[in-house]
Design a protein around this nucleic acid. Structure first.
Lengths: 199, 199
DNA sequence: TTGTATAGCAGACAAAAGTCTGTTATATCT
DNA sequence: AGATATAACAGACTTTTGTCTGCTATACAA
């Protein structure tokens, strides 16, 4: 590389290279950046990287191998994706989750993802195989869409609070409301997001 | 840790730990695994990791720092969230995006998010204010839900390919299909995911 | 019993990767 | 011309991290 290249041009390419590598799940080492750009000195790569950190385009963990990363959008976290929740309860299901999915979240509430089974909520635009993001909470308001444990399986329904009882309403005329006896139903959380993967 | 624990139990936990770390974009070092589980020897952590590789649950780059990864699992990337797309085109809208949202993506395709306006796709479970994740592509198959630029505004419709013409069908009987003249319509991409933020 | 497999430990070594000090050259502004 | 900033290089040093050899203990089956 010549002793002079236009201002910032190389650095822009370095940024793209690093970003690509991070997205591909393995942040590069300084020397890998050096080799990718045929720099003859490690320090050249390091200078570009440190500059990108100073500009706020990257963050790094000092002294750590492959420590360069993209600055996280504030409030992005990874929540466990559950296939189903059975009587055992949430913590068990979270232990055995299918994987983790990224969620944009403001608070610090406990969230989880749950794959939808059945057609009882199609009227609310929640179809089988959709993934709902659920905020864990034991109480909810009338009208909220909640995940509730009734019998030995978790279900997704609209909550209606009546006098001294709760009702779980499907959003599909082919299904009947569930009116559990006291103590027979536990609210696991409130649905805060619905995702449908089409391709 | 006692000199004996049930078969595979610790390894299962090691796997979950590593997977979580990889998903969060920084694969752990062997010693980080050691510390997380309070192993007194590096080798103990290493044995579990190597076993996970042998079982095909992890892959590794030999000799590389933080070389353990998930077998061809998706990365996470941030895609621009667009409020609306007008005649100017995509690149302009991406420049002025509302923000970035996390998406789990397999390929390296160019994606963007678009906030849904109008009720023309309610029949497909796509409601106003939903966010659709769109993969940029100029062509699509009959039946795909696409984002198309017709006139001076982008719209979301189901694509139908007829002989020598294309049709854009709403999923709501209150709206009429759009049959643009040749050259009057550009497909911007295909909807690959639908998200609804409820709270 | 003997052999085999798993779980775990100890300590060292070697390679990978981050960091540092100092140098040269080109452009730009005063 | 002089001062300053950027881009790049050279070579060494240090820390981090992967790897290795050898050891103990428990369970289980032939």
């Amino acid at each position: 590389m010549s002793p002079f290249t236009p201002t910032g041009e190389t650095r822009e390419k370095v940024y793209r290279f690093v970003r690509k590598r991070i997205v591909e799940d393995l942040p590069p080492t300084v020397r890998e950046v050096q080799e990718a750009f045929r720099f003859k000195a490690v320090q050249t790569a390091r200078q570009h990287l440190e500059r990108l950190v100073a500009d706020g385009r990257l963050v790094k963990a000092r002294g750590q191998a492959r420590g360069y990363r993209l600055p996280r959008e504030p409030g992005t976290l990874f929540v466990p994706l559950l296939g189903r929740v059975q009587a055992g309860g949430l913590s068990e299901a979270i232990e055995e989750c299918e994987g983790y999915i990224p969620v944009r979240s403001r608070g610090s509430a406990e969230l989880f993802g749950l794959r939808v089974q059945g057609e009882s909520m199609t009227g609310a635009g929640i179809l089988p195989d959709d993934v709902v993001i659920v905020r864990q909470q034991a109480k909810a308001d009338s009208g909220d869409i909640v995940v509730a444990l009734v019998g030995d399986e978790a279900t997704i329904k609209t909550l209606r609070l009546g006098r001294n009882r709760i009702e779980l309403h499907p959003a599909n005329p082919a299904f009947a409301p569930i009116i559990p006896r006291t103590g027979e139903c536990a609210i696991l959380g409130k649905v805060v997001e619905v995702r449908r993967y089409l391709a």
